[in-house]
């Protein structure tokens, strides 16, 4: 009886080789390998390749790349056109983020309510966020058409004359900002609403007992409690705006008079239209530096936030 039982144990352990716990040592590396390889090949290596190229001159067609040191950067930073591109990018980013967040903040306080009506409005406001930027760009190009566009018609109803939205150098960038804000607001609003809903109710109840006014309630409770969400949105917004490409490529192609040319489009133009690979890479390195700084700020703040909790 006992013998039979013990042979049963041995059988199990011999039949299938007992899986040693130590043999699993390599498994996690195997599991992450495919993902890591993709990252290394398509994201990490290209960054270094780009840095390498930024010190060279190359037109893509000729077989050799000539080392030129910092020349690309020097030319770049002394090129008034590039400085304008930087200025455009910063203006675009600043106003897009500022307007998106401010409007979304107001909207979210207004729309943060229960009921089908509000969820319908929230859905409607959000819908541009999931539409292809191609369609958004073309649609707004048509809406902002100076002669037959919807926007000028609406303005004509209140007696405003036709505005050359996309053809006037002073206005075109602002027009692109309007489009970006229109697209962003829904997303921002929903994120702020989520932030609002995570504010503990008892804070407001306490305030109600103290007869706190609405404005004070906002500045003393709502706004501080929202600040993590707002910070997140600011960073996401900046990262998102800085890499704007689609609307520019489809609507203005950087014009008129370079007034809407931004960093990514500039890199694209130099690399793919003028074949100035080294020069474009140098511009790419500048974008890399900007993104790197933003990312660092973001993770710093994020780790602090985790700390507080």
């Amino acid at each position: 009886m006992n013998l039979a039982k013990s042979s049963y144990i041995n059988e199990v352990s011999e039949g299938e080789k007992p899986r040693s716990i130590k043999l699993t040592k390599w498994r996690p590396y195997l599991l992450i390998a495919p993902a890591i390889i993709v990252f290394l090949v398509f994201f990490i290596q290209p960054i270094f390749y780009m840095i390498y190229l930024s010190f060279h001159e190359w037109n893509f067609i000729s077989p050799d790349k000539t080392f030129v040191g910092l020349e690309n950067f020097i030319v770049l930073l002394s090129d008034p056109m590039f400085l304008q591109v930087i200025r455009n990018t910063l203006m675009y980013t600043f106003f897009t983020v500022l307007l998106s967040i401010s409007i979304a903040l107001l909207m979210s306080i207004w729309l943060n309510r229960q009921g089908w009506m509000y969820s319908f409005v929230q859905g409607a406001v959000f819908s541009p966020h999931i539409i292809s930027l191609v369609s958004i760009a073309m649609l707004w190009m048509w809406i902002m058409d100076a002669d037959y566009g919807l926007l000028n018609w609406v303005l004509s109803l209140v007696g405003i004359n036709k505005v050359p939205w996309l053809t006037e150098p002073n206005i075109a960038l602002a027009s692109l900002i309007i489009i970006a804000v229109w697209k962003n607001i829904g997303y921002y609003t929903l994120i702020i609403i989520a932030g609002l809903q995570s504010i503990p109710k008892h804070l407001y109840e306490a305030a109600a007992l103290d007869q706190t006014s609405g404005i004070r309630r906002f500045t003393k409770i709502t706004f501080p409690m929202l600040s993590p969400s707002l910070f997140f949105l600011t960073i996401i917004g900046i990262l998102d705006s800085i890499k704007v490409f689609e609307t520019i490529s489809i609507i203005t192609k950087g014009g008129p008079l370079n007034s809407t040319n931004t960093l990514v489009y500039y890199i694209y133009e130099n690399g793919f239209i003028f074949f100035k690979i080294g020069y474009a890479s140098a511009a790419g390195v500048i974008l890399l530096v900007i993104l790197g700084i933003l990312t660092l700020i973001y993770f710093k703040a994020l780790s602090k936030r985790v700390h507080y909790q």
Binding site: F42, F43, M50, V264, I277, L287, L291
Partner: peptide, 11 residues
């Protein structure tokens, strides 16, 4: 944090 818009040229 690396967007496609940063690395498209080398890729």
């Amino acid at each position: 944090m690396i967007p496609a818009q940063l690395i498209f040229l080398p890729v």
